[in-house]
Amino acid sequence: MNIPPLRIGNLVAPIPIIQGAMGVGVSLSSLASAVANEGGIGVISGVQIGFREDGFETNNDEANVRGLKKEIRRARELSPKGILGVNLLVAINNYKDMVKAAVEEKIDLIISGAGLPTELPMLVKNTSTKIAPIVSSGKAAALITKLWQRKFDYTPDMVIVEGPEAGGHLGFSMEDLESKTIPPLTEIVKEVIEALKPFKGGADIPVVAAGGIYTGKDIADYLKIGAAGVQMATRFVATHECDADPSYKEAYIDSEFEDIKLVKSPVGMPGRAIRNPFIKALEKDNIPINKCYNCLRPCNPADSPYCISTALINAVKGDLEKGLIFVGQNAYKLKEIVSVKELMQQLVEETNASLAY
């Protein structure tokens, strides 16, 4: 049995791998286009995407809209026929403007997490852009599907299920993550598939597994339980095409199992990151905020331990002493930097070998 394609309506990705979005600036047009050219789905992270734009410090919203359009256009130039998506957090303050900008640029797919994208169908109405919420439970999948069908007569084009081993912000409480009471991703995926079945067209919604997926065997395991594909982020950091500074990639390569820790984010959600000098300093005291970008809800600079935008921008630019490095649980397994082509070929070969059994 060969690896099956991922079908999202009229979009067909020959390889059922979505490259997970990583912000700030870790997955932009270079990485996304490379993945799309290899038959997967390349995804641009919209989080503070305008950090290199003029006026970013003074008009954050406009710079981000401008930056998003530039990256989508560049990705499309590099991958004219590939499937390209953007990930836009519901928690960003200019969410609607960013969605509209992506739609204007005719992006193929919008993925949204960090909250439930309750109004997203309205923002893509009468366009060809597909939309996919990120959920962490069957309950959340049923809630957003019921809401979209009732308000907009719209069924999600795809649902991404993110488990507890993912990098970045996680859709679970710190207490649940630390107590390890959360079911494994395989169980959550099955739960979501069952939760969608009662809805109109629910049995046909592709469900994609995300979080901690590392090998082709992992991919095959999720395909075997009914997932239509997987989303992987961490593996793609250790590629030549990844948009981050080389030292950022090396931090992944150099990390050990014990370096990867759960951290508290200023926006109220836990995250997973490398315990580097920045995290160690944060363990002793808050890091003063000199500039607030008013970028995320419900972040309040008056009582935030640090500015997450500044920390992520520092990291992607290579200032790791002052930067926050989000990682998936398996980042320590990475040993070398390869091309996207090499990585995709390896994953397909491993998946096909596992599907044969």
Rank of each mutant, 00 (worst) to 15 (best):
V161P: 02
D153I: 07
V161R: 00
E165D: 15
K151I: 05
I193G: 00
I160F: 10
G171F: 02
I188W: 04
P156D: 06
E194D: 05
K151G: 05
G168L: 07
E187K: 14
M158A: 14
G168C: 08
W148K: 10
P184I: 12
I160P: 01
F199P: 00
K200G: 13
K197E: 05
T155P: 07
D204H: 12
G168N: 03
G168P: 02
A166E: 06
E187F: 06
I188Q: 01
E194F: 04
K146H: 14
D157A: 08
I193Q: 00
A141S: 03
A166F: 08
L147W: 15
E175C: 05
E175K: 12
V189D: 00
S173T: 15
T181C: 08
I144T: 04
I160Q: 03
I182E: 03
G202H: 06
Y154Q: 07
G138Y: 02
L185R: 01
A203C: 09
M158G: 01
V161A: 09
L143I: 07
A142D: 06
A195V: 08
L185C: 08
K180L: 09
A195W: 12
L196A: 09
G201V: 12
W148S: 07
K146W: 11
D176K: 15
Q149P: 01
V161L: 10
A195F: 13
L196N: 01
P184W: 10
I193W: 02
E191T: 01
Q149M: 12
L185Y: 03
V159C: 03
P156C: 11
L170Y: 05
E162M: 15
G171H: 00
D153H: 14
I193V: 10
K190T: 01
S179T: 12
E165K: 14
G168R: 01
L185G: 01
D176E: 15
K197R: 15
E162W: 06
D176C: 11
V161Q: 04
E165T: 06
S173D: 03
P156Y: 03
A166I: 08
T186V: 07
M174L: 14
I193L: 13
K151S: 09
P184K: 14
Q149I: 10
T186N: 06
I193N: 00
